[in-house]
């Protein structure tokens, strides 16, 4: 009984999804909406398949930018936290600026980056870093701040060095929080790369979409959107897999007496 209810709950989002697609498909057919306003989902899928090779080329470019930016964000976040730990005054000085940097409209910056750095790889990677770095850094800082000071006292009383306290206590205990931030960043990384490309590029999904949009090829735009969604989901799943492997202690919670 319980089990079947669980399966029902798991299927629920899929059912809603299929229902929405059906309504969409029906609406397009009933009112025979023109292709350049709203294509049916079946048509979007067709377009995605027929332009597969072109889409794949642009996807690889976008994915590369997103991954490069994402990796840089992780490295930068760790460097930042390392220096914050080393020099607490640096943290006092930089933390508010870090928060304020998030209030700058991303689109404006993306435009400025194209003006300053041209149409190449750099401005896109910068946009991705701008989006991804903050959630990763904040979650890492939060995770390290969240470590029970008594735990650190205990290790100090056992004569542990700062490095040992970092590797045995602070870093592993910050991992669950770190992965929470990583998951958010993974979701946004592809989108950020696309925004970067939208503002000026010669390849990539964002660039491809601007071309299609100018030609009113809505089915092509939506096919690219589909790819973006799938890629983002894939990245989130990869992060979750990494978390599953690296944070084994949060997998189960059975109490034994």
């Amino acid at each position: 009984m319980r089990k079947s209810a669980n399966i029902g709950l798991r299927l629920a989002p899929w059912l809603v999804f299929v229902l929405l697609l059906t309504v969409w498909e029906m609406a397009v057919r009933i009112w025979s909406l023109p292709l350049w306003i709203l294509p049916a989902p079946s048509r979007v899928l067709q377009t995605a398949i027929s332009s597969f090779h072109l889409l794949l080329d642009h996807t690889m470019v976008t994915l590369g930018e997103a991954m490069l930016g994402f990796t840089c964000s992780v490295v930068l976040a760790f460097l930042l936290v390392f220096f914050f730990n080393l020099l607490p005054c640096l943290r006092q000085a930089l933390y508010p600026l870090l928060v304020i940097s998030q209030t700058i409209p991303l689109i404006t910056l993306a435009v400025l980056f194209t003006i300053w750095f041209g149409w190449g790889l750099l401005p896109k990677v910068l946009v991705v870093i701008l989006v991804c770095f903050f959630p990763i850094a904040i979650s890492l800082i939060r995770g390290i701040d969240g470590v029970d000071p008594e735990m650190i006292d205990l290790f100090r009383s056992m004569g542990a060095s700062r490095l040992k306290i970092w590797t045995m206590v602070q870093f592993p205990l910050a991992l669950p929080s770190f992965f929470a931030g990583l998951r958010i960043s993974a979701t946004y990384s592809i989108m950020a790369a696309v925004i970067g490309e939208w503002m000026g590029a010669q390849q990539g999904l964002g660039f491809y979409m601007t071309l299609l949009q100018k030609n009113f090829a809505v089915d092509g735009v939506l096919a690219a959107v589909l790819i973006i969604c799938l890629l983002s989901l894939l990245l989130v799943k990869l992060v979750e897999l990494a978390e599953y492997l690296l944070v084994p202690w949060q997998r189960t919670n059975t109490i034994h007496y």
Binding site: D148, E150, M151, L154, M168, P172, L173, L175, W249
Partner: peptide, 8 residues
């Protein structure tokens, strides 16, 4: 508190 590391 027992202060055991949840990670080990």
């Amino acid at each position: 508190n027992d202060l055991l590391l949840p990670s080990r």
